[in-house]
Design a protein around this nucleic acid. Structure first.
Lengths: 337, 337
DNA sequence: CTGAAAGCGCTAACAT
DNA sequence: ATGTTAGCGCTTTCAG
């Protein structure tokens, strides 16, 4: 069951030096040893395929060089890209991200949070909506493991944070649609949205107001972040009798596409649709989806950077990075006829 | 930087017992202690938020309870679902999967393989195409870390393995198209395909033969597994002058959809398309994609099961599980006119 | 029923 | 330039 590991002692014996010597040389602290000794140790290491035991190493260093990452849904391309960015940065920083998807399930999320902590991750990136303030207070705080929050903020007055200018995202979406002449519109978003999604809504409402339209021209329709939910919301959208829909994420829009398609309806002819995120897929659906773009790979990268920075300088002030969004106009929106 | 951890010693002191007692009780080996003692220890543990130090624990047990998972592309929904299955099984088995995506890059793959080993994973699930036999021989074998291969087999005579009946998948695809009357067909697949993909090709060719068509009725077109590559292959497909295309994965098909769409061509009217994998997205594109379904979530689950089984019973015979595929007929294929 | 003691593989003061 | 020693936090004989 267990791997027969070569230990540092064997390398030391084989090279005819002490354990210390090997340790120092292998950790690039071997300046004080002769070139000859260093070469010998390195050679033996290679020959025996020595790999240091992280468990022993971490036990002393009190660091596992692992980062825990909690996301709500691995199957959403948005988060795949987020992870992509995190992995990219972690390679440079020689950390290993441990990624878990909680599938929007509070129980699962708490489970993974606990496990991650058990495995003594050095820090946490929590990009999960369902995590509760209590879970963080109860599990994370006592261990003093630094964490960073993304996509939510009700919890987080003291933690480092990544934010996206979601208010502006909603505003841009709303301005785009109203400029196209739409007056009655719907928004598709989850029932208990996190703060970032509520910001999108707030921005969208602001645009409606700016355009001089009455607030009740906007119909809110609840749907979870999945293609299926978007699809299933189709009838409600149609019943709401609007000419344009703002989907709080792209996945939702793609689900809605299908529902409209099955009913023989045409986008944007019968209904203009704008999404949110700008996932790759947007360019591969028909019609290509107009959306609000978030720089998600960069967001992932920066999340990791901020966290690692915090680990290395525990005492710096609370960090906050805010990312801009932009409108990416494609073919799913058009002037109201 | 480091978390102030509560140690077992503090729990012992607080509870007025020895370290041994705490260890035994917390590891469910406390049968020999009085109920009273057990309760007290458990209570103190709760109160102090004690979490055992995995590094110390693993150092002794020679097991990290972690599994390394290497996949080629996290952004392909097929692999997201694969991971999903792995995570599911791992929860039951109390292992933690560490997932890394190598983005079809040999260097990256070798890097992650090494890192995973450094972090002393107990076993590996390698579902990555670009991994080389040498990398496995050089890195994995000496450490005697059990591993399981999926989606390739040239390497693996002795390792446990998960296989999918890809020959049959290709055959089914070919039979479906020939039964619809198609005579000239193309197949889209990566240039240096892994064995599983080549099996799909072999099955497809067998179907052509069965149908009494000449072998050169099939045009092979190379494209990596990405939407972009499928899109970029469009012109080649059109130049090949075929009436049907077999895409070696669904993602490719969706890319091709876009290329055809931009040229005003119609699926399946102008070209029948069949994919491979049966990702969720297939039902959300227009027309819904006919495909060969692999039970990918189950494959992930079984991969983890097999590996964990191997870890627990190191001496059992080499394990091999073979999964069936099936044709899922939707609207992207039709009779040749 | 409970505890003392040894030791997992490694790093880092502190000698020499 | 190199080695000795102590100890990280835990599990596990073994002795009471």
């Amino acid at each position: 069951m267990m791997a027969k590991k070569v230990t540092i002692r064997q390398v030391a014996d084989e090279a005819g030096v002490s354990v210390t010597t090997v340790s120092q040389i292998l950790n690039d602290k071997g300046g004080r040893f002769s070139q000859e000794t260093r070469d010998r140790v390195l050679a033996v290491k290679e020959r025996l395929h020595y790999v240091p035991d992280f468990n022993a190493r971490n036990l002393i260093l009190h660091s596992s060089k692992m980062l825990g990452v909690l996301i709500p849904d691995l199957r959403n391309p948005f988060f795949s890209s987020f992870i992509h960015g995190i992995q990219e940065y972690c390679r440079d920083a020689t950390y290993m991200p441990m990624v878990f998807s909680a599938n929007h399930d509070v129980k699962l999320e708490t489970y993974y949070l606990g496990k991650l902590l058990e495995h003594s991750v050095d820090g946490l990136i929590i990009a999960s909506a369902s995590i509760t303030a209590e879970a963080i207070d109860k599990l994370v705080k006592p261990l003093q493991v630094p964490y960073l929050l993304f996509d939510q903020n009700q919890i987080a007055n003291l933690a480092d944070r990544i934010e996206v200018d979601d208010y502006n995202g909603g505003l841009l979406a709303g301005q785009h649609l109203t400029e196209l002449g739409h007056q009655k519109m719907a928004i598709l978003l989850p029932a208990n949205s996190t703060i970032n999604v509520r910001e999108r809504l707030r921005g969208f409402k602001a645009a409606i107001k700016q355009a001089g339209l009455p607030a009740d021209n906007l119909t809110e329709i609840h749907a979870d972040f999945s293609m299926k939910a978007g699809y299933e919301a189709t009838q409600k959208v149609l019943d709401s009798n609007v000419s344009a829909v703002f989907c709080a994420d792209d996945i939702l829009a793609i689900g809605l596409y299908r529902g409209l398609n099955e009913r023989g309806l045409h986008v944007p002819g019968d209904l203009s649709i704008i999404g949110y995120d700008d996932i790759d897929l947007d360019q591969y659906v028909y019609p290509r989806l107009t959306t609000i773009a978030q720089p998600v790979v960069e967001i992932g990268r920066e999340s990791a950077r901020l966290l690692v920075n915090r680990l290395e300088k525990p005492d710096i002030d609370r960090q906050l990075i805010k990312f801009p969004v932009k409108l990416v106009q494609r073919e799913s929106t058009s002037v109201k006829k």
